[in-house]
Structure formats: C-alpha cells, structure tokens
Amino acid sequence: MDVKRKVEESAPPIVRYKGISKAYGDHQVLDHIDLDIRPGEKIALIGPSGSGKTTLARLLMTLEKPTSGTIEVNGEQLWHMERKGKLVEADEKHLHRVRGQIGMVFQHFNLFPHMNIIRNVMEALVHVQKLPKAEAEARSLEMLERVGLKDRTHHYPSQLSGGQKQRVAIARALVMQPRIMLFDEVTSALDPELVGEVLDVIKNVASEGEMAMMLITHEMDFARDIADRVLFTDGGRIVEQGPPEQILEHPRSERLKLFLARFRRHFGDSADVMTAVGLE
C-alpha cells in the first residue's frame, strides 16, 4: 500500500523545534535538537533505547518541559507566550490553546478504564471542544467504525484485546482532528499477532493526508511504507535523516550502520526486517 503523498516542500512548518535541549539532573537527554515538520508530513523516529525519541514527543505534547530552546506549533510558541511585548513562560490557558493542535497515542493505550469505549472517544469532544452530545456521539461512532470497532462501543476497555484497545486510543486521539499526531511505539506492548491490525489502521489514516505524524517505531518495514522522512536519533541528537530508502538501505554514519546491523541480528530471522534493512 503506497500511502505517501507529496508533501508541500515550501509550506511553513506545522512544528518547529529550535535548539531544544532536555536534561534530567545532569543527564543530557536531548542536545540542541533542530527539527521542522511540515503540514501533512509523516516522519519516523528510529534509534537505540534511551536516545531521546519519547522525550522529543513528550515535549511537544507538553508532558515534559524543555530545559532550553523553543518549540513552535503552526508559527506560535508552545512553551512561551508574549505578555506586554515580552516573551514569558506560557500559562495553562496558552498551553491549552496550542495543545489543541496536537494528539498522542501511547505505548500502553492509557484508555480510561471506568468509561466504556464510546465515552472514551466522546469525552474530549464534549468537554474540550464543547460539541453537543449527539454530534459528539455521531462523530465518535464514525471514528470507531473507521478503526473497525463499531460493534464494541458499549464494552469497557478491560473487555478488549490489546490491539482493539490501541485502535480505540487511536480513534480517541483522531476524533479531535489534531494537526499533528504523535505515535510512541504504539505496537510495542502488543502480542505479535495483534500488531498488524493496528499498523493497518495507522496506514489507513496516513493515506488521508492532511495530518502530520511523528511515528516512533521499531517496525522498520512500517516506517519505510509510511514515512516521508526517517530520522535516526542517538545520544540525544538527530544523527542522520532522509528518505526511508536512503536511511534504511544506504546508511552513512557508522552509528546508524551499527544500529541497523544490531537490529538485523536481533530480529535476524524476520524476513520483514531483512527487507526493511535492505539485506534480502
């Protein structure tokens, strides 16, 4: 399935990281990251564990605060705002407004266990976007149908399989129509046989275009299918980036070569990975 669409090269970025650093104590997790994501662009982040991929996404979702640097969303500062002509720290109201353009799907789903599926999806439409209940419900049903779960609307999360839960979580984030959506290893907690159904849903969403995506993943085949650009992070820096074919098949830096080789050895018997890494 070819889901890629031409991304407007000249469009102003939907997200811009400028000199972003993040440290926990004296542990430097991100080190002066510069990154532009264009509207509708699909980027995949790959890299060894601890290289800062999740942190990069969490800073944008406002789950974590950068130590220094700025993030712009659609041309507007995320963590800062102007007050009396001076740039000051953003208050909750400002964050609330800018955050509305961002959505996130987590590795461990984080569905609300005390709400049934339809309420999980509707909740933010009703209480954040303030839609009338009937309309929110109709839109949520439509979204659940898209992820193939229309017949589960009155079940509770505990009654679903991992793959189904993750599809609900995707519907819950999508229904808010964010300009950019963050997927942090959304299949890593799933049994292998359930990975496919979730990836298919994401591919389907990606094929529709307008929404930008940041995919943190270890599924190289998937990254290659979906991403316009693959970024390799290591030690808190973006070491190499480019089109999937270039990054996955013709890595230039030693670190990326090493990463891909280790990856191949680790999943050595998987044909998928072999193909993705270009070693068939």
Partner: peptide, 15 residues
C-alpha cells in the same frame, strides 16, 4: 497510573 494523567493532558482536559 501516571498514564491516566498523561492521556488527560493529551486530550486537553482542564485540571
């Protein structure tokens, strides 16, 4: 779980 707070934040719920 912390994930419940984070999902609430990601969905832009008020405090």
């Amino acid at each position: 779980p912390r994930g419940q707070w984070e999902a609430s934040r990601a969905l832009n719920f008020s405090r």
